[in-house]
């Protein structure tokens, strides 16, 4: 499966540098829907749109701005963003290694995979293998677009995962909700432990499926039987963003023209 590259650069630790690509580790579940055009069931795509000119804006005409006052923006280019931390925008430098079991789960944010780029396969495998043997992960900071991420790089089933972590300041304190006393009924605890031990199994997420997905699948089967499927027209996927948007704008203009003719 070829996953779309989100970022590319280097993972480094000490004097070793491994060229890598960042790809998704999470996808929408099995039961996901597409939005369609009611008219002919063509799939819909998300595009940036200018409300004033009422047209689609191609990627090369889109800039990033920070609002300093209402409708007053300071424009920040991608190059300037990269320039804020030039040493971190193309390199994930592992500063130290930690025991993965020391990371409280509250810190984990979003997972990605790192896959080796050409020439990096061997060093990548070495890092995967050694992290697996030691159950250690690397802590690094890296910058992606407008944000600096604190990340853990760890080994999962022969691959490197990169998991973004929350900064400690983003974790809300729990003192105010923690139990006021630590009073425990030893009998109750003992009984609980016994039950827990009796109910302990290996973690197998495959056992759990979204109850709703099942219901949706049933609905889909029923619909397919009753109404069958609809078919979207065949059309050529245009290459690149520019022409697509030009066509979109022209077709929209054409629609306006036809309306008035």
């Amino acid at each position: 499966m070829a996953l779309q590259e989100i970022w590319n650069g280097t993972v480094s630790f000490s004097l070793v540098a491994i060229p890598v690509k960042l790809v998704r580790a999470v996808e929408p579940g099995r039961v996901s829907f597409r939005l369609l055009h009611s008219k002919d069931y063509s799939p819909l795509a998300r595009r940036m749109y200018c409300p004033e000119e009422e047209k689609m804006i191609p990627a090369d005409e889109i800039i990033r701005g920070y609002e300093i006052a209402p409708d007053n923006y300071v424009v920040i280019t991608d190059k300037e963003l990269e320039s804020v931390s030039p040493e971190r925008s193309r390199t994930i430098e592992i500063i130290e290694f930690i025991d993965m079991k020391d990371v409280p789960p509250v810190y984990y944010d979003h997972p990605y995979y790192l896959v080796p780029s050409k020439g990096g396969e061997k060093a990548y495998c070495l890092l995967v293998e050694v992290m697996n043997q030691t159950n250690k992960g690397g802590i690094a900071k890296f910058v992606l677009r407008d944000r600096e991420y604190l990340v853990a790089v760890k080994s999962t089933d022969g691959a490197l995962t990169l998991i973004t972590l929350h900064y400690s300041g983003e974790i809300l304190p729990d003192e105010d909700i923690a139990p006021k006393t630590g009073k425990i009924d030893p009998g109750e605890k003992g009984r609980m432990k016994k039950i827990i031990k009796g109910m302990t199994a290996d973690f197998d997420p495959d056992k759990y499926t979204n109850e709703r997905s099942k219901k949706i699948m049933e609905l889909l089967e029923r619909k397919a039987k009753e109404k069958g499927t609809v078919e979207a027209p065949e059309f050529e996927e245009e290459e690149g963003e520019g022409p697509v948007d030009l066509v979109a704008v022209l077709e929209e203009s054409m629609r306006q023209v036809k309306k008035h003719r």
Binding site: P243, L246, L250, E251, M254, K258
Partner: peptide
């Protein structure tokens, strides 16, 4: 050229 071509194609389609 790109512009005129796409315009021509849009007109052809419509």
């Amino acid at each position: 050229k790109r512009f005129s071509k796409v315009v021509a194609e849009v007109l052809q389609r419509n």
